[in-house]
Amino acid sequence: MRPRLRRVPLHIIVFILPAAAIYTAFMIYPLFDSLRLSLHGNPEGGGVVFVGLQNYARLVADSLYAPRFWGAVRHNLIFFAIHMLVQNPVGLLLAALLSARRLPGLAVYRTLLFAPTVLSFVIVGFIWQLILSPLWGIAGGLLRAAGLGAHFRPWLGLEGSALVTLSLISVWQFVGIPLMLFHAALIGIPDDLLEAARVDGATGWRAFWGIEFPLILPVVGLVAILTYVGNFNAFDLIYTAQGALAGPNFSTDILGTFFYRTFFGFQLQLGNPFMGATVAGVMFLLILAGVLPYLFVWQRRIEVHEL
């Protein structure tokens, strides 16, 4: 006798259905429709036809698209690297400081550090443009007051420094996210573990790397993957601060702005929905390539200590 398939209880289906239906209609269907669109084209004079992977080939090889595309990928990697090297370590450091016991004014620090995260991109972009403005900004004045006036540059307007400056602005805005996640994980560690370490003679430094860090390792992975997804989806800050042309000379052009220009067009340039969908397809694949190893390797291998 073959085992009967276990029936999913009806009430579970009923509960899942509304969310599943909305998610399918507004996320899954558009995603696949966009991927379908990227496999089509509109050759001269003809209607919409299936072109296979031609659009993807054009994107990575055609001299019209390839320089912009590879430039955007490179800038996205730099953007991501700066977040990983600055935002997350700083977030961890601040979280460790905040979880030190008996810190006076803890709630005030926590709120202040998290505040920029809830601000709109538009406000953050605008404020930092004003702070750094060579005409009206306070950055130049502050540096001059400190005797470093000679080091002031219009950072947002120079090809060499614009992308790094914007990355750091983004770090300033979002450092609150890793901070909160690390902080929550750190205060979840039972005191008796740390007390036991202290009894065994571990210093604060050693206790952190020997006890606390291994215990929050799952959160480290989560923060990394959130940063990755957020960075490869980034668009708003660059668009607000530098416009859709991501100047100067495309030096701050990331996949988000490249997609925007390609899909919607810009000024006299008409939009191309097929190539736009192709750029979106590549963004999807890149994010997928980052998330899958996380889901199937990191999350399965990592030891989650039951506390």
Binding site: S133, P134, L135, R153, P154, W155, L158
Partner: peptide
């Protein structure tokens, strides 16, 4: 041009 014109926008 004004110093820092590289970061000077239209409204500026």
């Amino acid at each position: 041009l004004a110093s820092g014109f590289e970061a000077q926008k239209y409204p500026d």
